[in-house]
Design a protein around this nucleic acid. Structure first.
Lengths: 125, 125
DNA sequence: GAATATATATCCTATAAGGATATATGTCAA
DNA sequence: TTGACATATATCCTTATAGGATATATATTC
């Protein structure tokens, strides 16, 4: 029994790169936000299918704050339970810029890989 | 002390997606080969910096064979110790095609992410 | 026959994702 | 006024894969 099902378009059986950190950073770069809202919103970036598991979001937010890439404060105003509002720090913005560089390079590496494959088999791509 | 050094162009502190499986599959798609040679050659695809750790290559080759994506036989001819020569099976070729689809989509998702960032800050990209 | 290059294999650890579950607060309607 | 539901955060355990060290064996070369 193959570990990977070749009939599906998703080659990973398990953990893939989710780009959780840059997704959260970009989310906060576009607008200050909080965990519950980020869960809904970062799927828009395309690396997470459906809603991200809450555990992952909060884990990342805690780590990001510990690393000084985001800062937070409780917001009790507005509707519903208190939210912990997060915003990027300067370090966080720099980190996002580093991610952007990396992701751009990664896209080019992926394109080159695909091209290498297709060039070998030009009639069946 | 930040967990990530924002002065470097590599945002990951630890494990990133290495695309080891598709790299090995493409390597074997281009030419039948064996572990020691793949260690030298797959860096060309750009996902591994320098030589891949032998442990990773052999681990993957064993798993790929168990999954029926590659087939192997000992080659005692030629110079040096015996090599285990690997080639793709039909399932392996299908799997590579699935990877190619996925990687192409991933490249587009990365591009869209970068664009989203740059559009927000058009003067400082 | 000692040193080096070739070649494969095994092992343990670290990192991050997957996913389940717990806890608490606010809202709204019967 | 309480019960159901939505909002919001937090913690925990498991799994997948990468990192990296080490072991073993065979050819080659000097």
């Amino acid at each position: 029994m193959p570990r990977n099902d070749t009939t599906e378009a998703q080659p990973h059986q398990g953990k893939r790169e989710r780009y959780m950190q840059p997704s959260i950073l970009l989310g906060l770069y576009l607008n200050a936000s909080y965990g519950y809202e980020l869960i809904q919103n970062i799927q828009e970036f395309g690396f997470v299918v459906g809603q991200a598991p809450p555990g992952m979001i909060y884990r990342h937010l805690h780590q990001l704050e510990e690393d000084g890439l985001v800062a937070s404060e409780w917001k009790t105003e507005g509707t519903g339970p208190a939210k912990r509002m997060y915003q990027l720090t300067e370090d966080g913005k720099q980190m996002l810029a580093v991610w952007i560089d990396y992701m751009e390079k990664q896209a080019r590496t992926l394109d080159a890989f695909v091209k290498r494959y297709r060039d070998e088999k030009p009639d069946q791509g």
